[in-house]
Amino acid sequence: MTVRSDGLKAVWRRPGGRAGAAFLGFLVLLAWLGPLALPDPFRQFDLVELADAPPSADHPFGTDQLSRDVLSRVVSGARISLAVAALTVALSVTLGAAVGLVAGYWGGAVDAVIMRLVDGALAVPRLFLLLLVLALSDRVPLAVLIILMGATGWFATSRLVRAEVLRLRTEAFVQAAEALGASRRRVIFRHLLVNAAGPLLVAATLGVGDVILLEAGLSFLGLGVQPPTPSWGGMIMDGRPVLESAPWVGIFPGVAITLTVLATNLVGDALRDVLDPRSA
């Protein structure tokens, strides 16, 4: 029985947290195992007979213009969206934690310079920054997309971690550790970072939803995940011209985005209630 497992149980006890966690669990399983049981998402069944076919027993979510199975593509898109979101958030949380720790621990001029730069970066809309970079290059590989989104997503996290570190530095147990000869590295990683983990986890969870939306938006604009790789945003773009005649092409990926973002936000809010009593 540890502090952490208590926290996870408390999330599960909240209706919102439970619904969100259950949906995300289901989605991860589906993204992992679903493709084994579903048709190949790239397969074009019959361009003449099955283009934009409505939902049927063979294709529960219908097919798109290229007669590909929409359910298969939504499930494969979940793989892409979840993986991209997880890697992006891992990168941005690492960067944000590192910068926040440095600024908060060293303070003074280091802190002032870093935080003014972060203030400046926060003043630039992330979407425009990404659009600018992506529009100037053609066909961005997935890895570069992840790095770009991660590298522009840590500013708020660094402020959060810095604030936590400033608070923790005055805690008696940090002073006690210093008084007993703990090295700087131990103080930073064991006493400051681990105790800032709660708010950091909340920010990371909520960040996953943001990144899924961001990636969908970029893909919708044709600047994110490149076709034919299935992505939810890209599928909505595919469905846009046929929204009236074949609404299932765009609606199902749209519902997937909405439910997934809603689920991550529910889990994030439940975590916040449990781990971060000050903002509850």
Partner: peptide
């Protein structure tokens, strides 16, 4: 020199 502080409630790291 070893040192102990006034408030044992806050002088220990809560997560270890």
């Amino acid at each position: 020199i070893g040192m102990i502080f006034q408030d044992p409630m806050t002088s220990l790291n809560p997560v270890f």
